[in-house]
Measured scan of single mutants.
Amino acid sequence: HSLRVHINGKDFEVHNADEHVIRALEELIRRGADADELKEFLERWKG
C-alpha cells in the first residue's frame, strides 16, 4: 500500500506500508499522538 500522511503542513509518503505499519499509525492517531510523534514513527519505520 501507499499511504500519504499530512503532518504539520508536510506530506509524508509511506510506500509499501504493510498492514502492521498502517494499524500502528492509526493507533497513534487514535491515541491523539502529536505531529512530532507521528513523524518520529514514520522516520523510524523508513529506517
Rank of each mutant, 00 (worst) to 15 (best):
L28W: 06
N16T: 08
N16M: 07
V5K: 00
A33W: 09
E27K: 09
H15V: 11
F12C: 02
L25P: 00
A35S: 11
L3H: 14
I22D: 01
D34A: 08
H20G: 10
W45H: 14
A33M: 07
L25C: 03
V14K: 00
H15W: 05
V14S: 01
R30P: 01
E40H: 10
L25N: 00
F41H: 06
D11T: 14
G32F: 05
S2P: 14
V21C: 04
L28I: 08
R4V: 15
H20E: 13
F41R: 02
D34T: 12
H6K: 14
D11L: 15
V14G: 00
G47P: 12
R4H: 15
V21R: 02
V5R: 01
A35Q: 06
R44S: 12
A35C: 07
A33V: 08
R30G: 11
K39H: 14
D18R: 03
E40K: 10
A17W: 03
A35N: 05
F12Q: 01
D34K: 07
R4P: 14
G32H: 07
R31H: 11
E19W: 06
G32A: 05
E40N: 09
E37T: 09
R23L: 10
V14H: 01
D18G: 08
K10Y: 07
D11Y: 14
S2Q: 15
L28E: 07
G9F: 00
V5C: 06
E26G: 07
K39Y: 15
N8S: 03
K46Y: 13
E43C: 05
E37H: 07
D34Q: 11
R44K: 13
I7N: 00
S2I: 15
I29P: 00
L38S: 01
G32Y: 05
K10G: 02
W45P: 09
S2M: 15
H15K: 08
G32P: 02
A24P: 01
W45R: 12
L25I: 12
H1S: 15
K46L: 14
E43H: 08
A17I: 11
H15P: 05
H15Y: 05
E26F: 06
I7M: 03
I29L: 09
H20L: 11
A35T: 13
R31E: 11
N8D: 11
E13C: 15
L42Y: 13
A33D: 02
E13A: 04
D34P: 09
H6V: 13
N8E: 05
E26T: 11
D34C: 05
W45A: 09
L3N: 14
L28M: 13
D36L: 08
E40Q: 11
A33F: 10
E27W: 04
E26K: 13
E13F: 10
K10S: 05
L25R: 00
L38T: 02
R30V: 11
V21W: 03
K46D: 13
L42T: 04
